[in-house]
Design a protein around this nucleic acid. Sequence first.
DNA 1: TTTCTTGTTCGCAAAATTACGAATAGATTG
DNA 2: CAATCTATTCGTAATTTTGCGAACAAGAAA
Lengths: 108, 108
Amino acid sequence: MGNRKYTDEQERIARFAKAMGHPARMAILEFLARQDCCFFGDIHDELPIAKATVSQHLKELKDAGLIQGEIEAPKVKYCINRENWQLASAIFAKFFGQCVCKKESCCK
Amino acid sequence: MGNRKYTDEQERIARFAKAMGHPARMAILEFLARQDCCFFGDIHDELPIAKATVSQHLKELKDAGLIQGEIEAPKVKYCINRENWQLASAIFAKFFGQCVCKKESCCK
DNA sequence: TTTCTTGTTCGCAAAATTACGAATAGATTG
DNA sequence: CAATCTATTCGTAATTTTGCGAACAAGAAA
């Protein structure tokens, strides 16, 4: 584990950020955050992209840990992964809180 | 303006998130956040990548608005863009705060 | 002016991302 | 069993990202 280029913390926040780095995925997260959960079809209806693409974005959000899914045949139910959502929330808050910059930026 | 696929808010946070979506860029941001400002060389020394690549990452962070640079010949001084940093901080906090999920996630 | 220092830009290659339609899988319904 | 509904996976194409060395630009120093 000593051959890493960056710290675990940097890798971790970058992972969350990367998952959030596409407007379609932000739209999915916002849609899910506003309700307890919903089905794939509901998410697809909300977005202007093909279902294969929606599925792909959902997989990325799931891999990043921000959401989770469950089969409820013949549908698939998705929801926010609450634990990681709070973790991400805390990590981002800490990250943004660490800036020591003054009222005036030193560069123009 | 009616032909947009996603809301301005979604585009905006995705833009910030995308810029933060690489560990090298997170390392740069953390390094800059811990001090008032520093030179390109200092940042390069901190990272395990070629200077051309560092320059490229800096450009992306600058385009996203998270940092700013200034020529101080023959060096280039970089620092956090405080205004946008606080904007991003607020946007992320609001985003994570909007989740209505309960203590128990509805999906496994 | 010539040389040196500092960073950016260029050109390129490899890898990853984004997007879609078609094919597929799994379960339910007729 | 056949047909249907739901969503994922496959195959593919276009684009973007990442990374590097070499070339370049702009000042500073000799």
